[in-house]
């Protein structure tokens, strides 16, 4: 009866091909980085772009080793790690708040078609408002209302997070085939059982796709949220600061951009790893 087996359940790959696969996996992205770096440096030569407009890549990275505050302060890298940590904390808080809110909205919308139709346009509309304009309204407004500083800052990250989570989770909850629901009905399952054993696990892959989008968006949200809060630490203030001195020291701003990208990547990787641990799915 095993003749119609499509795929052996225990395919154990040996070390050799596995290592080769790891190379194959990382090689394309490394090649792209190398190409981009080459284009960067080449265009500097070809178009004769001065260092004040586009610094050498190497000077951006050596910037991390420089001492701040006229050569007496901590190394730039120390400062950046501290600030990146602060921004990451804000991003995670916002991600959690937005994620919970997004899931709750999706659950409500999945239960009531009327509410979904009525409210979804406003959910979409919320993302069309210029973020830069509403950030001060929300952060300063909520701060004046007595909310703690960390909450005020993370609300923008939450604002960017809840949207993809609402849309993704709703799609996931609605992804259950009618026949799967009919089977549950034939077992005389309670609505609670249908949710826990069918709807929620079926929605998880959709939820994680949304969470991955949200993880990177929440870092941007955290940076934007830091700006009106007046707080001195975080990547947001660093960027504002570096932007003011861009004409004299452009590598500072580039370094800050680089760091904020790393924070986003790190968060994304964290969510992907969680997904792999939780979602048991076909490996395509």
């Amino acid at each position: 009866m095993s003749d119609d087996l499509a795929l052996p359940p225990n395919t154990v790959a040996t070390g050799g091909p596995n290592r080769l696969r790891a190379y194959r996996r990382w090689l394309p992205s490394l090649a792209i980085i190398a190409t981009l770096a080459a284009i960067w440096e080449l265009s500097k030569i070809v178009f004769a772009i001065p260092d004040t407009k586009l610094p050498h890549l190497i000077s951006i990275f050596t910037e991390f080793g420089e001492r701040t505050q006229g050569g007496n302060g901590p190394l730039w890298i120390e400062l950046m790690v501290k600030n990146a940590g602060a921004t990451f904390t804000v991003a995670v808080l916002g991600f959690v708040i937005g994620g919970v809110l997004g899931c709750l909205l999706a659950l409500v919308f999945a239960r009531s078609e009327l509410l979904a139709r009525g409210c979804l346009p406003y959910v979409v509309g919320s993302q069309l408002v210029p973020l830069l304009a509403i950030a001060p309204m929300i952060v300063i407004g909520i701060g004046r209302a007595g909310a703690p500083d960390w909450l005020a800052k993370s609300l923008i990250a939450a604002y960017l997070t809840f949207f993809p989570v609402t849309v993704g989770m709703l799609r996931g909850l609605r992804s259950v085939p009618a026949d799967a629901l009919a089977l549950m009905r034939s077992y005389a399952a309670t609505p609670w059982q249908v949710f826990w054993k069918l709807r929620l696990p079926a929605a998880l892959p959709f939820l994680f796709t949304a969470l991955k989008i949200a993880s990177t968006a929440s870092v941007i949200g955290a940076i934007v949220g830091e700006l009106p809060s007046g707080s001195p630490i975080g990547i947001g203030p660093v960027i504002v600061n570096a932007a003011q001195y861009y004409s004299s020291r452009p590598q500072n701003l580039w370094a800050a951009v680089f760091v904020s990208c790393l924070v986003g990547l790190f968060f994304y990787a964290l969510v992907s790893l969680t997904e792999r641990l939780i979602v048991r799915r076909r490996v395509s």
């Binding site: 085939p177 026949d179 799967a180 009919a182 089977l183 069918l198 696990p201 079926a202 998880l204 979602v279 048991r280 799915r281 076909r282």
Partner: peptide
Amino acid sequence: VFQAPVLYDW
């Protein structure tokens, strides 16, 4: 039993 097996992937 339906035409599609409707098994749970997870």
